[in-house]
């Protein structure tokens, strides 16, 4: 565990906390893509199956359970909470799951380390996480007024990705056996997806304006 990895995890946790806070405090999920949140829940389920058969550290297990619980909590609010679900931008959040899930599943079946159920699901979760933010980014482009909490949520997720890349560079330099092309390439693609968002986020932050993405 290095500092970059810890910062990455903390930004990830913070992003989820900001989102849950927004939903609970404002009783609204306006601007949040349920598709992205459900994809993240699926990512965590597929990746953290190893909770049942492998143990790395108390920290890892605790974080895995936290990510799973919070992901399902967010989905539950957006789908079933009487007040919150009315604020969901259903008509705008139209990204099709199949366009993301099918290619990731196919790729995981072909490009993996071992052709076993858990390994394929783990690889699938890596690929799917890389693109799961897309429905959220599309929704934000369609939304005229992006509130600050939503913008900060996505910015924190981007920061998490950025620190994970620093973590990989650090591990590549310091650990003999750290060659993980599947994780790296997916991670770089995932982080690159945020580049455009960050560009406008920085512009609006400098101008002290509300975030607006060009159509």
């Amino acid at each position: 565990m290095n500092l970059f990895r810890l910062c990455g995890d903390m930004f990830h946790l913070l992003s989820i906390m900001v989102l849950l806070l927004k939903i609970r405090a404002t009783r609204s999920c306006r601007g949040i893509s349920l598709k992205t949140q459900e994809l993240y829940a699926l990512v965590f389920v597929c990746r953290y199956l190893d909770l049942f058969y492998s143990f790395i550290s108390v920290y890892n297990s605790f974080m895995k359970v936290t990510f799973l619980a919070t992901a399902f909590s967010i989905v539950r609010y957006m789908r079933y909470d009487k007040v919150v679900k009315q604020t969901y931008d259903r008509e705008q959040d139209t990204f099709r799951y199949v366009f993301l899930i099918a290619p990731c599943l196919l790729l995981a079946l072909v490009l993996n380390h071992r052709f076993t159920l858990t390994e394929v699901l783990w690889t699938f979760s890596i690929y799917l996480e890389a693109v799961a933010i897309l429905p959220q980014l599309v929704l934000m482009q369609r939304t005229q007024n992006i509130d600050n909490l939503t913008a900060n949520y996505v910015a924190l997720l981007g920061a998490y990705r950025g620190f994970y890349i620093l973590n990989w560079i650090y591990r590549f330099a310091t650990e003999r056996h750290y060659r993980q092309w599947i994780v790296w390439i997916s991670g770089v693609i995932q982080t690159a997806l945020y580049a455009d968002f960050f560009f406008y986020y920085a512009l609006c932050w400098k101008a002290n304006k509300r975030l607006q993405l060009p159509a």
Binding site: D9, S57, N60, F67, H113, I182
Partner: peptide, 10 residues
């Protein structure tokens, strides 16, 4: 050469 990833990250 890609090694099987040590699954110690989140």
């Amino acid at each position: 050469d890609d090694e099987e990833a040590p699954k110690d990250e989140l």
